[in-house]
Nucleic acid binder design. Structure first.
Length: 352
DNA sequence: AAGTCGGGGCG
DNA sequence: CGCCCAGACTT
């Protein structure tokens, strides 16, 4: 047992978090769902989603039997929607290939869609008390500081060294407290800015603290400029109903419902009524555009111009595959991305 | 090794 | 406004 692990475990039992909604259970499904929701997502953002998701999909079988659209509906607004598609797919794999029981073998867990080494280790330690280490953003920050490791932690070389280091630090028991302690320390003590070193259980051996490196470790990700894109979204409207199209499963907002969208940089004409007629067989008149707003992603920035059109005559059935007409209230509760929801809320608040 | 995937919280 | 978060997957 390493001293590192000893102090972390003792600290977690007294000062760590013990009442999060996914704690105090050994149900691998409940733990699995939480770990997927928490990937690249802070605890405060997950709290509002977790209970609703578990109430609607209480078991692996319930999730496997649901439609992808309903799963995405319960993920709407949380982001990284491939997580929801992978979760759904993995539930069906467990039913089909593992008799509906969540696998316990560490390597087998990692064969499931959306579960890599770190998430597998979190599930294996929390649900099955296996001795496996996680390596998430919290742990990378704790380790690079405690052992004064320079360089962006997500480069393959440093990441490999961090995995090996994390393995060596593992205890042989108390894995629930240890894994939770790694997370809790990074989230509450060894924070990105203003770490609370005076109350840290590992402060005496922390090299970054000894060498005054806590402000420059971990080494930040190299910054690169991101492109900006301009898009127009057509809001085809008939009374209180609007038209949504299903986005392809790959790419941004995969599988979600959205407005028809046109790249302003390649659009040859701004005759949106003609576009509506040619693309959808819908006669409509363009109204004045809503205020343009911006939405930031990790790798580009999107400027969205919402363009409402009022339907005068509908010459095509609107129930083709990939199209749906919903009243605004129902659309707000559908599987839609956040900017679409914001537009719908605006329309709901400003009836024309 | 680099790019793709959201959205929100916080200084 | 920039950075990061209980990362995984694709190219």
């Amino acid at each position: 047992m390493t001293d590192f692990a000893n102090r972390l475990i003792a600290w977690q039992k007294v000062h760590g978090r013990h009442d999060l909604p996914w704690q105090n259970t050994t149900d691998p499904y409940a733990i699995w769902v939480s770990e997927i929701m928490l990937q690249q997502t802070q605890v405060s953002a997950v709290i509002g989603y977790y209970a609703k998701f578990m109430a609607r999909f209480p078991t692996i079988a319930a999730l496997a039997n649901a439609t992808q659209d309903e799963v995405l509906q319960h993920w709407s607004g949380l982001g990284y929607y491939s997580r929801a598609r992978n979760l759904h797919n993995a539930a069906q794999t467990i039913v089909d290939e593992h008799s509906g029981m969540f696998p316990q073998d560490f390597d087998t867990i990692q064969t499931l869609s959306g579960i890599g080494r770190s998430t597998a280790a979190a599930i294996a330690s929390f649900a099955f008390h296996q001795v496996q280490t996680i390596l998430d953003g919290n742990v990378k920050r704790v380790l690079t500081r405690h052992f004064a490791i320079a360089g962006w932690p997500s480069t393959p070389k440093i990441e490999k060294a961090l995995w090996q280091l994390a393995e060596k630090l593992l205890p042989q028991s108390d894995m629930v407290a240890y894994t939770q302690g790694l997370m809790d320390l990074g989230a509450t003590i060894c924070t990105r800015s203003k770490p609370k070193c005076t109350t840290c259980p590992l402060n005496e051996s922390c090299l970054a603290r000894q060498q005054n490196l806590t402000t420059i470790l971990p080494t930040p990700k190299p910054k690169k400029s991101i492109p900006e894109k301009n898009t127009t979204m057509l809001i085809l409207r008939q009374g209180n109903e609007i038209m949504l199209i299903k986005r392809p499963s790959s790419g941004i907002w995969g599988g979600l419902w959205s407005f028809p969208e046109y790249d302003e940089n390649t659009l040859t004409s701004n005759d949106y009524a003609t576009i509506a007629l040619n693309q959808f067989g819908i006669s409509a008149t363009a109204d004045s555009a809503l205020p343009t707003f911006s939405h930031a992603f990790t790798h580009f920035k999107l400027h969205i111009k919402p363009q409402p059109l009022t339907i005068t005559k509908q010459t095509l059935q609107a129930r083709e595959a990939g199209f749906i007409w919903l009243n605004i209230e129902d659309a707000i509760g559908a599987a839609i991305p956040t900017p679409i929801r914001n537009i719908l809320l605006y329309l709901h608040k400003h009836p024309s």
